[in-house]
Design a protein around this nucleic acid. Structure first.
Length: 416
RNA sequence: CGAGAUGUAGCGCAGUUUGGUAGCGCGCUUGGUUCGGGACCAAGAGGUCGCAGGUUCAAAUCCUGUCAUCUCGACCA
């Protein structure tokens, strides 16, 4: 079936609830629709991009030896009472009761469930280390959801957990994740920085955040202008111009969007929830744990914050919903229509992902929608279609160029 | 739960001060003219005015309550 514009409800006006560009363009471009505060439907375009982010994450995590699993979103209260977080977590935990008055929570994170899962099986040092991850919808009853997908009450998160017999193994895996995360965010096309972070109520003793640099970020990063030192201001409350704590350079500030966070949890959950193993000396020890999160839906917003202009989104190739946006200027023109249909088929056969705008709309409407939606390559079929000439335009460039159809495919394959 | 604001058609808004038959723009439908950067003309469809109660001959408008949404703080991927 052809991929056309059938359910891409773009709109001209700016939605009043949206303030930042990423939110505005996701709504205007027909990517998301709000259902309640902090709760959104992902329309077809958004889902395609989301799946691409997920695919990159899966690829990199599988490469370092993680296994994907899927845990429930509904958690029995008993597990959270075991860890102590039923009381600690506060109102952010979405709570509910079943028909028997038994208490449950909608999972905001899965340390409890994963510890429950592994404590019966990871009983020997021979089975460690192990790393597991899932990509799943999380629920957090934020006091104030905002900025669209940036801080939702329901959002897609990749959460990973690692299990170790000793500190050296935890350190090793923490670094593996750190590197995998760097690859993931680089592949997505984000300009990010790794900073020292506070571990918050997840617990643990060392953590780092992956911050996408953006004026619209909710976090403040303090960093040295002469070294690698960088931290969340929550950890080092430094002013601009202060000397850097590592003795090199002076402190600067930047705003960032937190898209990833890695923690060395240590034994907080294994001790509380009785997850022990026997080591080679038959000594009973708590499993050391690490946990690693990526805000998958937030990545979409962060990417747009870094990649847009006054007309709309400019997707990085890796996570664009389609590679090519094909636009016949006038679908009623028989030549244009036939050339477009043939080219569409040709592109599909070459494995390109193509969005085909076969609507009977004026050129301006289609071009504006294309700019808004932000697919990297636009191919326009116009008056010169009969001569075998089409127009090629990249979303990140101003000018279009005319290309003969004979060269088009090979040119596209080359640049892929 | 603290502070501020807003709820009227799918979207954006006017009307509320001074109560009196619910309006505008965009979008949508039909017909026609247009057709490479959000066209034009004509005719239409679409609304329990967030919800509940009250005052009144009469409430979008006044009163009380309530819910929702947004912005500023605390929390987080």
């Amino acid at each position: 079936m052809r991929q056309t514009m059938t359910f891409i409800p773009t709109q001209k006006g700016t939605p009043k609830e949206a303030e930042i560009p990423s939110h505005i363009y996701l709504v205007r471009g027909g990517y998301i629709k709000q259902v309640a505060a902090g709760i959104y439907s992902y329309l077809p375009l958004a889902l395609r991009s989301l799946k691409k982010v997920e695919a990159i994450i899966r690829d990199e995590l599988d490469q370092i030896g993680c296994s994907e699993l899927l845990m429930p979103t509904l958690h029995p209260a008993e597990l959270w009472k075991e860890s102590g977080r039923w009381d600690e977590y506060g109102d952010t935990l979405m709570r509910m009761k079943d028909r028997h008055e038994r208490e449950f929570a909608l999972g905001p994170t899965h340390e409890e469930v994963i510890t429950f899962l592994v404590r019966d099986t990871l009983n020997s040092y021979k089975k460690l280390p192990l790393a597991l991850y899932q990509i799943q919808t999380k629920f957090r009853d934020e006091l104030r959801p905002r900025f669209g997908l940036m801080r939702g009450r329901e959002f897609v998160m990749k959460d990973a957990y690692s299990f170790h017999a000793d500190q050296a193994s935890l350190d090793e895996w923490y670094n593996k994740f750190r590197q995998a995360y760097s690859k993931i965010f680089s592949r997505i096309g984000l300009n990010f920085r790794i900073v020292e972070a506070d571990s918050g109520n997840i617990g643990g003793n060392e953590s780092a955040e992956f911050m996408v640099l953006s004026e619209r970020g909710e976090d403040t990063i303090v960093y040295s202008d002469a070294s690698d030192f960088a931290a969340n201001i929550e950890v080092y409350n430094l002013k601009e111009g202060d000397p850097s704590p590592d003795g090199k350079g002076t402190i600067r500030h930047a705003k960032g969007i937190e898209v990833g966070h890695i923690f060395k949890l240590g034994t907080k959950y294994s001790e509380a929830m009785n997850a022990y193993f026997l080591d080679e000396n038959q000594e009973r020890k708590p499993i050391l744990m690490g946990c690693y999160g990526i805000g998958v839906s937030r990545v979409l917003m962060a990417a747009i914050e870094q990649n847009h202009d006054d007309k709309g989104i400019i997707w990085p190739k890796a996570i664009a919903p389609y590679e090519i946006h094909l636009i016949p200027v006038n679908i009623r023109d028989e030549v244009q229509r036939e050339v477009s249909e043939a080219l569409y088929q040709k592109l599909i056969n070459q494995g390109f992902e193509v969005l085909y705008d076969d609507r009977d709309e004026r050129a301006g409407v289609k071009f504006n929608d294309a700019d808004l939606i932000g697919i990297p390559i636009r191919i326009t079929i116009g008056r010169k279609a009969g001569e075998g000439i089409v127009e090629l335009k990249y979303r990140h460039q101003q000018e279009a160029k005319e290309v003969s159809m004979d060269h088009l495919i090979s040119l596209l394959l080359q640049e892929r």
